[in-house]
């Protein structure tokens, strides 16, 4: 028996919007730790890891570890039917081949049940080693989204370089090239508007903008994004989910042949 009640049901709606274009089918794992997902895109270039900790749910019952295979587009369709202020409960019986999403309006005057078929998905859980990053950039998530969108109208790849000067996002394409430099800026009143750069070593890596743009669909989940870079390692683009956990996107770099 599994029953997870999330008062902020719109978090789950936002999570689905953030991952459904990157990953088609995925197993959601439920354990005493929380509700999680790890999945790669079909080209095995990017990986998404989601964790919603059990403490973040108003009610969390998970009698045994379960893995539920879901088509993310279908799940998103169902969650779109929940109101933004609705309380969402995820329910599944042991051994059942369906999952039920229950939506309750805040004043309890409307209750809806949406039952979705589960699927068998063969997926490998990859071991993600702990890494020391050469540079960690924390910036407003809307700013990062804007940069990725702007640069993708010029080129297909982005070079992210971190030096003492700041973080530089560069692209080049047939019509020309573009560079956006963001400097550390902690003087603004609101911490969510600041940019901080923690650099141990300068680093410069190239990534496909198509994936970066896909990651920015998680922007509504968090006002800030953390970009962790190390040469020869996938970049980690992390959006913290307040009081609940995180969504992390890992993207393999492009390298010179």
């Amino acid at each position: 028996m599994l029953e997870l009640r999330l008062v902020q049901g719109n978090l789950l709606k936002k999570v689905l919007e953030a991952v459904k274009d990157l990953v088609t089918d995925a197993n959601f794992d439920c354990s005493s730790t929380g509700f999680s997902l790890q999945a790669m895109d079909s080209s095995h270039v990017a990986l998404v890891a989601l964790l919603l900790r059990s403490e973040g749910f108003e009610h969390y019952r998970c009698d045994r570890n379960v893995s539920m295979g879901m088509n993310l587009n279908n799940m998103a369709k169902m969650l779109k039917c929940a109101g933004n202020d609705d309380i969402v409960t995820i329910k599944a019986d042991d051994g059942s081949d369906t999952v039920t999403f229950m939506f309750e309006s805040p004043n309890q005057d409307k209750i809806a049940d949406f039952e979705m078929k589960l699927m068998d998905i063969d997926s490998e859980h990859l071991g993600i080693p702990e890494a020391e990053y050469h540079a960690i950039v924390r910036m407003p998530s809307s700013e990062f989204a804007r940069i990725c969108k702007d640069l993708s109208s010029i080129g297909d790849t982005v070079v992210i370089s971190v030096t003492k000067e700041g973080v530089k996002f560069s692209t080049r394409g047939d019509i020309g090239n573009a560079n956006v430099v963001c400097r550390q800026n902690t003087t603004v009143d609101k911490p969510e508007e600041s940019t901080t750069i923690e650099m141990h070593e300068p680093v410069s890596l190239t990534f496909a903008l198509r994936y970066m743009n896909s990651f920015t669909k998680a922007t509504p989940l968090s006002s800030t994004v953390t970009i962790s870079l190390s040469s020869e390692l996938p970049v980690v683009v992390e959006y913290k989910i307040a009081e609940m956990g995180y969504i992390r996107f890992y993207l393999a770099p492009k390298i010179e042949d």
């Binding site: 990859l126 080693p129 996938p234 890992y250 393999a252 770099p253 492009k254 390298i255 010179e256």
Partner: peptide
Amino acid sequence: MQRQKSILSFFQRP
């Protein structure tokens, strides 16, 4: 020429 690395070349399969 640039080549796209796979995420599988960084993270271990179980």
